Simulated assay, not measured.
Amino acid sequence: MNALKDIQGVIFDYGGTIDTNSRHWAEVLWAKYVEHQIPVDKESFREAYVFGERALAKYPFVQPWHDFHDVLSIKAKLQMEWLAEQRKLPMDELKLQSYATKVADSCYEYVLDILQVTRPVVEELSKKYKLVLVSNFYGNIQTILKDFGLLDFFDEIIESSVVGVRKPDPAIYRLGVDAMGFVAKNVLVVGDSFSKDVVPAKAVGCRVAWLKGEGWGGEVIDESVPDVIITNLAQLPVLL
């Protein structure tokens, strides 16, 4: 039995799906901390990451015109400043800026490499299906999609900071289904997060392709919930 039979449209998550092809952004960033020998332990980094994400969600550090390199620079700066304030890093402004620049630059290059795999998948599917993007983001996702040559592939964009609802609230996926214009059972959701993509998408009646990879940890996983499980976005087209 084809689990993805009669799919008419595809909803994509962005962060962790299109830009990292299944790696949680915390793991991508931590790998760059290690690569550039930033002298903090992983637990301290995780605390800095959480601080930064909460700050970005609460305050308008990111503006609509910021591209993804700008976002990475802001994230890295917030993390480094927090680590210094917590005395996990020396309070040396030049060194902190150097660390932040190295992390942002190398993460951006990482995404450019990943897009060599994921962008062709999105492009291919856009020729066969209506595509909608549903993302928890900062109000600048269209700038980022345009910068990466992805914007024209999507018929609609549902961005949390614009619509006022965030994953894991199923309501954001309901907005995606409404924008799609098809019944939920004929809509496929593709995302990397079990709790923020798989569970809420199934709650509104969509079928789901879980892009299983290097997650944040701590989630309760039931692999019977998604309709299909993939580990690389390039595996998706042959299933449709």
Rank of each mutant, 00 (worst) to 15 (best):
Q142R: 13
H69R: 15
L83D: 07
L131I: 00
Q97A: 12
R87T: 10
Q86W: 04
N140I: 02
Q116I: 04
A104V: 09
T118K: 15
L78Y: 10
C107N: 07
L145A: 07
A100T: 02
V134H: 00
E85A: 05
E81W: 09
D70V: 06
V117F: 06
T143M: 08
S106P: 07
A84K: 11
V62T: 01
T101R: 15
T118F: 09
V134C: 06
D67Y: 06
L115K: 13
L94I: 03
E109D: 08
E123F: 05
K88E: 11
V122N: 13
E124H: 14
Q97H: 11
I144K: 02
F137Y: 13
L112T: 01
E81H: 13
L145G: 12
D147G: 09
A76T: 05
W65Y: 15
G139R: 02
N140K: 02
R54S: 03
I144M: 05
Q116T: 08
S126F: 05
Y110V: 06
K75T: 09
R119M: 03
Q63D: 11
Y108G: 02
N136I: 12
K127N: 04
E85I: 03
F137V: 01
R119I: 02
S73D: 07
P90C: 05
Y129G: 12
G139D: 02
V71A: 04
L89V: 01
L131F: 01
K127G: 07
W65C: 05
S98Q: 12
E123M: 12
Q79S: 08
E109N: 14
Q116H: 09
E93G: 07
H66Q: 08
K128H: 13
L131P: 13
V122H: 10
D67M: 08
V121S: 09
A57Q: 04
K95W: 07
L78H: 10
E81D: 15
L72S: 01
L125F: 07
L125E: 02
